[in-house]
Design a protein around this nucleic acid. Structure first.
Lengths: 149, 149
DNA sequence: CCCGCAATCGCAATCGTCTTGCAATAGCGC
DNA sequence: GCGCTATTGCAAGACGATTGCGATTGCGGG
């Protein structure tokens, strides 16, 4: 697993888009690969490699290797929400950044543009170009703050 | 290892302060405990449990258990800088929050007040009360941006 | 339609980080 | 000192992820 994205994001909208992108790069479309892709497409939130392996009855190793390929091609990303396994998602509809509640484990996925004001403040004050695609913003979500302020 | 701090921070300035705090809570001051504390005091940046264990020739398990106690008492914290082991530091001189360069792995430790403007923007826009003590702000540091913009 | 090569697969083993079980040890209040 | 119990060291295990390797299989070329 790498820390930074392996390749610039390659946004796809449909399974066919992804398959076409893979074919163009000379990568094979094995049954396993299709199953991993289908599983990622079916998920509405980032999922673990373990989740995928169980869902489509594949070897965990094979799932990890396919996810690695997809990340290298800029077709998928993984995010670390607290401890626990990395969670994977396709870049369908564009990159996503995350906010994570460490109390209730809620996850908010937002388009990068929405976090630009945050990025701006960080850049101005510290010179860092921050991103929250791989490690989210961690804190207490509105609901938890209201419940136990 | 826990995600959130176990106890409110208990700021100490000297090894004697920490020892006094432990005694007050009825915790024993074993040789191992003193060595872990001394090691944390000697470090100028957060260190791994492994680092401590090697440095003072203690069993890794014992180091982890001592660090756990220190966190429960609000005397120490750990931070995750990218992948790899959690890194521990005493709360000497107050809590610290972190910015982490995922390219050169530089770490900037700042007082929480310095990140309040960032926190404010996040709170206004998303309602999250963010903190960067346990998971840092991740991105590209000024030096790396200048080098490969 | 078949061949052959390299990409990919499944399985087992290994790694890195951290945790748990348990018997032995040793602080600390009395 | 005495005894209670926190703490220790060692071994084993949990968990996420990676590597080695022989077997399989997509897929371009004939």
């Amino acid at each position: 697993m790498t820390i930074a994205p392996d390749a610039p994001p390659l946004v796809c909208e449909t399974l066919e888009d992804v398959i076409a992108a893979l074919r163009e790069r000379g990568l094979r479309l094995t049954a396993s690969r299709r199953l991993v892709l289908a599983s990622l497409f079916a998920a509405e939130a980032p999922v673990s490699a373990e989740h995928i392996a169980v869902a489509v009855a594949l070897d965990l190793t094979s799932v990890y290797r396919n996810l690695e390929v997809l990340e290298q091609q800029g077709l998928a990303r993984h995010v670390h929400l607290g401890h626990g396994p990395g969670l994977y998602a396709l870049l369908v509809g564009g990159e996503r950044e995350f906010l994570h509640c460490e109390r209730c484990h809620a996850v908010a996925a937002v388009a990068p543009a929405e976090l630009d004001p945050v990025r701006d403040v960080i850049r101005e004050r510290f010179g860092y170009e921050a991103h929250f695609t791989h490690f989210p913003i961690t804190g207490i979500c509105p609901a938890c703050r209201a419940y136990a302020p």
